[in-house]
Design a binder for these strands. Structure first.
Lengths: 142, 142
DNA sequence: CGTAATGTTACCAGAATAGTAATCTTTATC
DNA sequence: GATAAAGATTACTATTCTGGTAACATTACG
């Protein structure tokens, strides 16, 4: 079973949480942590990463907090995944073909490239605007 | 970067190697290991697993060896992947939703289910018959 | 029985993962 | 400007996973 890591999962919960609030709403990391069941010490690094990547905008200091850096409809699941997992690559020979001495004419490598592209396209098509709408109005996307 | 493991990669090379031979051809593990650059001690477990899953047929003892258990066209890349990675599941909450207390109405979980299904469908569509044909006749599938 | 082959198990070192904790920086407010 | 609230950064740990090695067991042919 090859899966995304917990970081990525938590990150998507955080972004989803913000996407469900009023546009531009700002909340504290501790608040998200408690509501979304994320280890509170953990959330710091995740938020930090997401803001470095341009998904979140943070405000330090008293009264500060976390908000989406862009409208939720412009944030894709792929972006969040790649922030933690690196560029999508279902096999090492996809990201760095040189690692495999056989890769030049290897059809399996081609297959993995194709699979990776398919997955990437799917994840690009999922925005947090869509996901938030599913929560607000479950009927809209059955 | 979340990728398949080396086991899975090696396994696909082994099956591909056999798929390129005459149908029913039987060769030794050591032979495959040397030709496909797989650690020779490693290949035992891999072959053993693949035969347990019904992809390979092995014959023990002197003069024994390894062959495909079925025509290459009936062996999918998905099958080989799942033999080593377990059932496809891009997030833990896909395989076991109970693990996440939020999963009941979690749209991200839905997204991961969809992504997993897409990937599974893609990998089901890739057979080692196709892959072997690409090697024999690169023009046929450009 | 000896040899050639796969099957199985145990083991190891290094890396990654999940999670914790402590400390530093920034900034709003009083 | 002192204080406290908030995020930023770094280090650390325990556990698991991974890739790989090695040894031994089993089977079968001649």
């Amino acid at each position: 079973m090859f899966t995304i890591g917990r970081n990525t999962d938590y990150a998507s919960r955080i972004v989803l949480h913000l996407a469900c609030l009023e546009p531009g709403a700002r909340v504290t990391a501790a608040d998200i942590a408690s509501r979304r069941l994320i280890p509170s010490a953990f959330i710091r690094r995740i938020v930090s990463r997401l803001s470095a990547v341009g998904v979140l905008a943070t405000v330090r200091g008293s009264g500060g907090g976390i908000a989406l850096a862009r409208p939720a409809a412009q944030i894709t699941l792929r972006e969040v995944v790649e922030a933690f997992e690196g560029p999508l690559s279902l096999n090492v020979c996809v990201a760095s073909p040189a690692i495999c001495p056989l890769s030049v004419t290897c059809p399996v490598q081609q297959a993995w490239v194709g699979a990776t592209q398919h997955l990437a396209a799917f994840l690009t098509g999922v925005t947090f605007g869509d996901l938030a709408r599913e929560i607000r109005d479950p009927q809209s996307v059955p």
